[in-house]
Amino acid sequence: MTRFWLGGYGSAMEGSADGIGLLAGDADRQTSLSYRGAVTQTPSPSWLAPHPTLDVVYAALEGDAAVQAFIRSGESALQPLGEPVEAGQNVCHVAVAPRGDFLIASCYGDGRVVRIGIDAQGRLVPDAVNRAAELRAALLGEPLEASAPAGVAAAASDPYAGSRTAGGDERVSHAHAAAFLPDGRIATTDLGFDLVRIWRASTGSAARGLVLDHEVALPMGTGPRHMVVHPSGHLHVVTEYSCEVFTLAAGRDGTWAVVGSVLTSPIAEVGTDFPAELARTRDGQFLYTALRGSNTIAALRVQGGGESLEPFALADSGVDWPRHHLVHEGKLLVAGQRSDTIALLDLDERTGAPLGIRHQAPAPTPTSFLLVR
């Protein structure tokens, strides 16, 4: 039976989820799913990420500015593995290193990018020594905050100095997601400053934090949100404000740069549609993003050596405000944040196009899925 852990928003984030939930499917290749209730009492676990080798799940507690680890304690149960660890305001994403020795938390509210250590049992280690807080102070010309949580790296300055939004408000850093690159470096998005940052994880007993390597500035107002690393090594980045997918590649000197961009769909409406997640098939032939607003799923075909994308299909997502989706066994699972539902879409095995809505089910303010291994 196919099962998924389900992240969601609780009352503090204007949602109805009571904690990490469980979705369970039937035995027939997951042709339907039903919500089986909360397996933890956790406030707004909006994003979930797995440990690469242990039966441990890490949750971004968005309303509580913290990250917490949970260990599998039964066939369909989780229990806390230690106390929550401070991250930053509105922590909305966590990504676990391939070796399972640390994670990166991205904080939308204050722009922090936080490295938190993980021990051999999967517990979070909040006392990592880290020079990245000093880096932040140097970049921003601010005094070092003694209260900053361990492992904090943060936004540098706005690449568009002195710039303001169209409404006249000052731009604010909004870290949104992280991805581990093939060479061991880490990419993070800053939706507020229109940046993709490339970091190096420092090592040794004196510094176990993040060191800023370089930045890739996207056009102002694009709003880079989520990313996927393609098997070719390219990095695809979906933008929330301009409805585009940018493709980045590393040059011979290791510096990343934009090598292409395309609209998620020819009929996507900037200012009405706000792309959320970006997911790919296992073989990397197809990408899918959800357009919140029109509540559709846009499909893109990967061409060339991974550097070129072509939008080729648009379909009803089956939910309202599709915040997250993933590809699983030839289907697309979609979380509807505002409709309190999830939907299951069939995908054409040959063309990759969404074929239609197979199944819909109620679920409390769903925000992310994670396959139960």
Rank of each mutant, 00 (worst) to 15 (best):
G306I: 05
F180L: 01
R225Y: 07
E83K: 14
R136Y: 01
R36H: 11
V245G: 08
E134L: 04
G109R: 05
G260Y: 10
D101Y: 05
R338F: 13
A66F: 05
V372I: 13
G74S: 09
V172L: 12
H230F: 09
S232F: 07
D346I: 00
G63R: 12
D183S: 10
A12R: 15
T42A: 14
I342G: 09
D26C: 08
A49R: 04
A95V: 01
T351P: 04
S232A: 12
P45N: 10
W199I: 08
L347I: 11
V245D: 03
Y35W: 14
V125Q: 10
L22N: 06
F4I: 08
A65W: 13
A154S: 13
S147F: 01
Y160S: 07
D340T: 07
P50E: 07
S11Q: 13
T165R: 15
A363Q: 09
Q360S: 14
P362S: 05
R171V: 02
P52G: 09
S173W: 06
T222Q: 08
S11I: 14
V238P: 00
A268Y: 07
A148R: 02
A315T: 02
V211Q: 15
L370Q: 04
D213F: 07
M13S: 14
G168L: 03
G192K: 11
L210V: 03
D169L: 13
V172F: 05
T272S: 12
F286C: 08
A201L: 01
S265M: 02
R123N: 03
L355G: 01
E307W: 03
G356Q: 10
F369D: 09
M1T: 10
G204Q: 10
P149H: 03
F312R: 08
S106G: 04
I342S: 07
R225P: 05
P362K: 02
G192Y: 10
P182G: 05
G88D: 02
T31P: 01
S265A: 15
R225A: 06
W47M: 08
N90A: 14
W47K: 01
M13D: 10
H325L: 15
F70G: 03
M220F: 14
R282D: 13
R301G: 03
E134I: 00
D127G: 05
G100M: 06
F193Q: 04
L181E: 01
G7T: 01
R197V: 07
S202Q: 13
T289M: 11
V216R: 05
R280E: 06
H234R: 12
W5F: 13
A27E: 15
G63S: 15
R373M: 07
A161R: 15
R373Y: 10
D194M: 08
R99I: 03
P84W: 09
G209L: 02
R280K: 11
P275L: 08
T2K: 15
G318V: 01
A156E: 09
H324M: 05
L22P: 02
T255R: 15
F274I: 02
Q285W: 06
Y241F: 13
A128Q: 15
T165I: 02
V57M: 03
E277L: 09
V57C: 02
T31C: 10
G10M: 03
